[in-house]
């Protein structure tokens, strides 16, 4: 028997429902694929594939942007601009590398530029001694991982009190689940510096919360 469930929906539905149904069909074809495979499809001209990438990253980038900007219009505009830049530059993406650091890098640039335009004090200095000197990479311990939720809660509460330099690695690590190398790619800093900033960021949180034993 031929499956006509899609047609049944169309018969009795309005345009928005049809669009939703079409979207679901489109998105289904990408469900088993990773970001890099979908990005490759976008490179070959598949616009629906880009819609799938937006679907995957809209929430993540919006959450990331909200940690920088309070105004929801600003957040929407910046996320939109990030996706537009990503689409325009998708041919420059190397599908052999990971997609998430690439799109977070675009978002990072957008946010930093927007902060500069707003003349916010919350900007990153051009030269940083941490980037210059080698450091031992402070690996995340099992205990750190166990306390991840506590750190996330504290980070949400005291975010505004932590400088951008330490805030971004903390956000990318704890909220966006990027590893050291991926964060290094987003911020274009050495992986060992990511470790140092995460360690110092956690220490700042400890001091703000006044309960060192929590971390």
């Amino acid at each position: 028997m031929i499956n006509t469930w899609g047609l049944d929906i169309i018969k009795g539905a309005n345009f928005t429902e049809c669009l939703k149904w079409y979207n679901n069909i489109c998105m289904d074809q990408f469900s088993g694929k990773n970001d890099e495979e979908i990005a490759k499809k976008v490179q070959s001209g598949d616009i629906d594939a880009f819609a799938a990438l937006i679907e995957r990253y809209e929430q993540k980038l919006t959450r990331y942007a909200r940690k920088f900007f309070r105004d929801s219009d600003d957040v929407k505009d910046l996320v939109q601009e990030t996706f537009i830049k990503a689409y325009s530059n998708i041919q420059g993406f190397d599908a052999e590398r990971k997609f998430s650091p690439w799109i977070y890098r675009i978002a990072h640039n957008e946010f930093v530029n927007a902060l500069k335009k707003k003349k916010s004090r919350d900007t990153v200095s051009i030269f940083d001694f941490d980037v210059f000197m080698p450091h031992l990479i402070a690996k995340e311990t099992a205990e750190d991982r166990a306390k991840q939720n506590e750190i996330k809660t504290a980070l949400d509460e005291y975010l505004g009190k932590i400088g951008l330099k330490y805030r971004e690695p903390l956000l990318l690590f704890y909220f966006e689940n990027l590893d050291y190398k991926e964060i290094a790619d987003v911020l274009k800093i050495p992986a060992s510096t990511v470790g140092v900033r995460l360690k110092r960021g956690r220490e700042m949180l400890k001091n703000l919360i006044g309960a060192p034993e929590k971390f």
């Binding site: 616009i47 819609a51 937006i54 929407k76 939109q80 996706f83 689409y87």
Partner: peptide, 10 residues
Amino acid sequence: LKEEIIENIR
């Protein structure tokens, strides 16, 4: 957002 971007692309 998604629809707006895709529409602009199309």
